[in-house]
């Protein structure tokens, strides 16, 4: 596996701003992985993604795309990437199929539009104008648009935002399948459920800096409590006891409880990605969602 993107000491400043929005970040996105970029609103996630898809070019630092300088890449770069924006990006007066056929016409290699639309449940609505689509249908069509050119790298921004659990599951399954077939995904989201289910590695972006780059598992180990919590019935009431994880196999009190009590649940002190997000970024997720709205 190669390195899809290698980002070194990346700085970016908007012309209207007096300070850098991106303040010297470094990270690699490995080919075949789902890399999640997380962080509160205004942290620099979208700016980073816009730089990687060449919508913003006046950056400082180095970005290599499969070993080639990103700045030197021409339009052929867009043959290889698929971009799923958070907001709908379709001609509302055209039908969904007309939209997909129009965009597909610009690529050398194209996926089967019918298969993609069938998979996300939109084929039967292909002749409906996009303006008449619900928010969830537009989100699914955005995903189809991103997959149209059989991309080598897929950029997804809040890919399941606004989807019901069933359709979110379908999209996540398709992303996982794409990764399993060798595709690389750069995901920005504030939905920690997506991160837990999809990401191989995540990076937290806060105020233009990357402060953690790791796997969800390692983050959970790092920020989790090394303890085991047992809930059991004691004279009809629910009781609980907490034991240190280290040396749990030799903890007589723990073993005794397992043998004698009516155990209801046993949980390790593993923390959730949501808690890790709050610890690392210092921002509550509901506060973050309100900002995103």
């Amino acid at each position: 596996m190669g390195t899809a993107f290698s980002v070194k000491d990346l700085h970016f400043r908007y012309p209207s701003s007096s300070e850098d929005t991106i303040k010297g970040i470094n990270f690699d996105v490995v080919e075949g992985e789902i890399f999640g970029l997380l962080g509160p609103s205004g942290a620099g996630k979208s700016t980073t993604q816009k730089i990687l898809v060449k919508l913003l070019e006046d950056y400082r630092g180095g970005i290599k795309y499969f070993g080639k300088d990103l700045k030197a890449m021409g339009h052929s770069f867009y043959e290889e990437i698929g971009v799923g924006f958070e907001v709908p990006v379709h001609f509302t007066k055209l039908t969904a199929l007309e939209n997909m056929q129009f965009f597909a016409g610009f690529y050398k290699s194209t996926a089967n539009i019918q298969e993609l639309m069938e998979r996300v449940g939109l084929w039967e609505y292909r002749n409906m104008k996009v303006g008449e689509y619900s928010k969830g249908m537009k989100v699914r069509l955005n995903f189809v648009r991103a997959m149209l050119n059989n991309p080598r790298v897929l950029f997804l921004d809040e890919v399941t935002n606004g989807l019901d659990p069933k359709n979110a599951r379908i999209i996540k399954d398709m992303i996982a399948e794409y990764r399993d077939q060798g595709g690389t995904v750069f995901l920005t989201t504030h939905l920690m459920n997506d991160v837990e289910q999809l990401c191989d590695r995540v990076a937290f972006c806060v105020d233009g800096n990357l402060i953690e780059v790791s796997t969800p598992r390692d983050l959970k180990l790092k920020y989790g409590k090394r303890e085991v919590k047992v809930e059991y019935r004691d004279n009809g009431a629910i009781a609980s006891a907490v034991f240190p994880l280290d040396g749990i196999g030799f903890n007589e009190e723990f073993q005794n409880l397992l043998k004698t009590a009516n155990i209801e649940t046993i949980h390790s002190g593993e923390t959730s990605m949501e808690e890790i997000f709050i610890i690392v970024t210092g921002v509550e997720l509901n506060e973050q969602a309100n900002q995103a709205d």
């Binding site: 990006v89 965009f103 610009f106």
Partner: peptide, 17 residues
Amino acid sequence: LEKQDGTIRTMMVMPVS
């Protein structure tokens, strides 16, 4: 209208100049 639809942005990430 196109700005409202977001289509200008998606056209910028197509293999056209």
